[in-house]
Design a protein around this nucleic acid. Structure first.
Length: 507
RNA sequence: GGCUCUGUGACCGAGUGGCUAGGUAGAGCUCUGCAAAAGCUUCUACAGCGGUUCGAAUCCGCUCGGAGCCUCCA
């Protein structure tokens, strides 16, 4: 079955066919590093990490480009250009680039904690000023931009009239009608610089107090909001590439403007498939600075936030995101996250049990095999596994794959506890179960469990478990319970196995 | 106001015409020295009202509620 992806351009699921066979070019809008990343940022980067991983799994060679916006944008177009980064830098008495570096490092730290695969290329806006200027010159030369007081604006209406007949109207992505636009765009200062309200800046003249500035043919200034993504995606992925991703909130105006800029330069729609992830909400509301409901990732990991009842591990967050479909909103809540934490733990443990299962460790005997309809269980397991790819091919439905994994967990645990016979599974099925689970859990879903403590701690715990076993054998439950209790307060939980064995787990 | 979505059980959340989603929480049972874990069983649904259909949570209409975008935004 071919991979199908939901394309925002067509508002429908389409069969994914790469432009160049065997290769995929993917551009995802990265973070603006003017502040620390929050939970909302985790959604797109985990989502597109899954897309990236799955495409690779399917055998594609993927060039994944994700930018770092470090040039900053003005708060409100037309007002005094208030570059976010430089403004905050003043407050914190830092050099702008120092601030940018700090938040870039923090972003990378969080991405690493989420176990996302770094993009193939991570270009910065400040590193591509030249490319952006060249592109703006091209747009001016083509007659779709004009210079006003040292700033350059894109002529949206002119573009629309020229490109709508070519099947690239302004608004093709967001479903917006340009005429409605004109009526609803609110009044802004300095409107007189623009010919039309819907025009957007390609280059902004920098007022004297503006720290981040670059020389350009139009005077000193800084690039407009949208041009960096057009310039950088074009440089590294060409005139037309396969996938452009980002949050739904970027659809308009950001992606719409990207399309227009790039179309002027290359006469094609820059990307074939537009994939947008939905928002993470908190009490039903988008998480964002303007709503004052932001939970930073560092706070999430440490639990240090009034809304958090406890810290949450990055893998819990990753699992939490995977449990829903990327195009649905996902509502944050302690109850939901705690649920995800427990669920992930259960899944991971079943997975570990599975990796240790072998036919050899179970004696075939009549009573055992009588418990299970051999063909039935074998077929069931295979059916669940078949669906892994089927669900992923259907627009990356990670939620359904996880549901199937939770159908498999009781089977795995049942075999371990001997409620089910391992001989109900053919050796080939068991092998497939192991490799498919391994592939989807670790390779595609990128879930992992930190190995905590290391060898020394393990040695100490083995010793304590040995002592506890001995105490139990002597029915000295006071001692055995003390060991278990004391360890539990330290966050180490002992579990007695059926056959007298023991294992531990660290929080 | 315009555009785009959305409303599923205590909570999160799949699902789009007929088949148990799944997870967490709750209840009962099995196992266990006790506990934990695990397994088994079980409870609470598809906002409301109409319509289409043999049949709708799923399609259509209306009503009510919620969100995103239209301004920086993942």
């Amino acid at each position: 079955m071919p991979l199908k992806v939901y394309n925002t351009l067509s508002r429908s699921k389409e069969i994914f066919t790469p432009i160049t066979e065997g290769h995929v070019g993917m551009y995802v809008c990265g973070p603006t590093v003017s502040g620390e990343s929050h939970l909302g940022h985790a959604r797109p980067y985990v989502t597109f990490d899954i897309v990236h991983r799955y495409l690779k799994h399917l055998g594609y060679k993927v060039r994944y480009v994700r930018n770092i916006t470090d040039a900053g944008h003005f708060e409100e177009e037309g007002r005094e250009a208030e570059d976010k980064i430089s403004q905050k830098a003043l407050l914190e008495r830092l050099e702008p680039m120092e601030l940018v570096q700090k938040y870039t490092n923090l972003f990378h730290w969080a991405m690493d904690a989420f176990n996302t695969i770094p993009p193939s290329i991570e270009p910065t806006a400040t590193g591509h000023i030249v490319e952006q200027i060249v592109m703006i010159e091209k747009i001016i030369a083509a007659g779709f931009a004009y210079v006003a007081n040292g700033s350059v604006y894109f002529d949206v209406e002119k573009y629309h009239h020229a490109f709508a007949p070519k099947g690239m109207p302004y608004g093709m992505l967001s479903g917006r009608n340009l005429d409605d636009q004109l009526d609803t765009t609110r009044e802004l200062d300095n409107q007189e610089e623009k010919r039309n309200k819907s025009d957007f800046a390609l280059w902004k003249n920098a007022p004297p107090e503006h720290i981040m500035r670059w020389p350009s043919p139009w005077g000193e200034g800084f690039p407009g909001w949208h041009i960096e993504c057009s310039a950088m995606s074009n440089k590294y992925l060409g005139n037309q590439f396969d996938i452009h991703g980002g949050g739904m909130d970027l659809q308009f105006p950001h992606h719409e403007c990207e399309i227009a800029q790039s179309a002027v330069c290359s006469h094609v729609t820059m990307a074939k498939y537009w994939i947008h992830n939905n928002m993470i909400t908190i009490n039903g509301r988008k998480m964002g600075k303007s709503y004052n409901n932001v939970i930073k990732l560092s706070e999430l990991f440490s639990g240090n936030h009034p809304l958090l009842e406890q810290p949450y591990h990055p893998m819990t967050i990753r699992f939490f995101i995977l449990q829903s479909h990327y195009r649905s909103t996902l509502d944050f809540g302690n109850e939901a996250l705690k649920g995800a934490e427990k669920a992930f733990k259960r899944l991971w443990e079943a997975y570990q049990v599975l990796l240790n299962l072998t036919h050899d460790s179970f004696e075939p005997n009549a009573a055992d095999s009588a418990q299970t309809d051999v063909d039935n269980l074998d077929a069931k397991v295979n059916a669940f596994l078949d669906e892994f790819t089927e669900f992923m091919d259907d627009d990356f439905n990670t939620a359904k794959v996880l549901a199937n994994m939770f159908e498999l967990a009781p089977i795995i645990n049942g075999i371990k506890d001997k409620h089910l016979s391992i001989h109900a599974l053919k050796p080939t099925t068991l092998a497939r179960l192991k490799s498919d689970m391994q592939c989807f859990i670790e390779e595609i879903f990128g879930l992992k469990q930190e190995k905590e403590g290391g060898d020394k701690l393990d040695g100490v715990l083995q010793l304590l478990m040995k002592l506890r076993k001995e105490a139990k054998a002597k029915k000295d439950f006071l001692t055995s319970d003390t060991i278990r209790k004391e360890l539990a307060t330290l966050g180490v939980h002992l579990k007695d196995e059926k056959d007298g064995g023991m294992s531990y787990q660290i929080d």
